[in-house]
């Protein structure tokens, strides 16, 4: 079923070939724009807030991974649901015999945003090659943290989708989420205390970017992994509950 939904979303995205190429080019420019400031900073300093150039690059690579996943799988669905609600066609989506959350979560994908993925792998690979080899526990912890963080970010976007059931116009929320996520490209230690907490538990980008990087550079702890799992699980549970509530109060556009 997931395969069939993904296939259709992919087919829709492939209808607009020029978009695919254009987004690819934008992705390259975006990567360059992200790496540029990093190079500039580390030309003049050895470390920033305890992070070396390769370590900060690793954070950036993880941020690119996140933005690629968000752009390809999460953000387009919010747009699709808002459109469905406005036109009343969500009715027809909800009538399919599958979990409604799954249907909505896969209603639109934007594969061209996966262009960020090779850049993330290249940057990450380069950064890791410059750093001392991480311990196996560090690698396992980092993988758990990345997956938990992605789950948490999915939950956050699903919460945003839920708000569209009540307010319909949620474009501002979309921009807010995307702008807040941008903070994840820098290590969390650069931010002040309260902002660090926000980026871990409210807009949990830090769980995908800084926590795994900490674990890979050998400064992680099991508490970090536990935090990541707790945040991920928390967001999944809360967003699921919010989704059920939103569905129950769905009013459907009139025909």
């Amino acid at each position: 079923m997931v395969g069939a939904l993904a296939r259709v979303s992919l087919l829709i995205a492939m209808q607009y070939r020029s978009d695919f190429v254009f987004n690819g080019l934008t992705g390259l420019l975006r990567t360059a724009a992200l790496v540029g400031p990093l190079l500039l900073v580390f030309q003049h300093r050895e470390t920033v807030s305890g992070w070396t150039g390769p370590e900060a690059t690793l954070v950036m690579a993880l941020f690119l991974l996140l933005s690629s996943m968000t752009g390809a799988l999460m953000e387009p669905n919010l747009g699709a649901v808002v459109e469905h609600i406005r036109r009343g066609t969500l009715d027809l989506v909800l009538l399919k015999p599958a979990d409604a959350q799954l249907l909505v979560s896969l209603s639109r994908v934007e594969p061209s945003r996966l262009w960020d993925l090779p850049a993330a792998l290249l940057l990450g690979g380069w950064a890791l090659a410059q750093m001392p080899a991480p311990s196996p526990w560090g690698v396992i912890g980092a993988i758990i943290a990345v997956l938990s963080g992605l789950a948490a970010m999915y939950g956050l976007w699903l919460l945003a989708i839920c708000t569209s059931f009540y307010f319909v116009q949620v474009d501002n929320l979309r921009f807010l989420l995307m702008s807040a996520s941008e903070a994840g490209r820098w290590p969390l230690s650069l931010f002040s205390g309260w902002l660090r907490v926000v980026l871990l538990v409210a807009v949990p980008v830090g769980v995908v970017t800084t926590l795994p990087a900490e674990l890979l550079r050998g400064r992680g702890s099991w508490e970090m992994v536990a935090t990541a799992v707790a945040v991920g699980t928390g967001f999944l549970v809360v967003s699921r509950l919010a989704w059920r509530r939103a569905l129950a109060s769905y009013t459907s556009a009139s025909s």
Binding site: I12, T89, L92, S255
Partner: peptide, 19 residues
Amino acid sequence: FLKSITLVMGQKQQLIWDL
């Protein structure tokens, strides 16, 4: 239940517009 019913709305469509 969902497999046992269908809803056809003259003003809304389930067909995917671009495909």
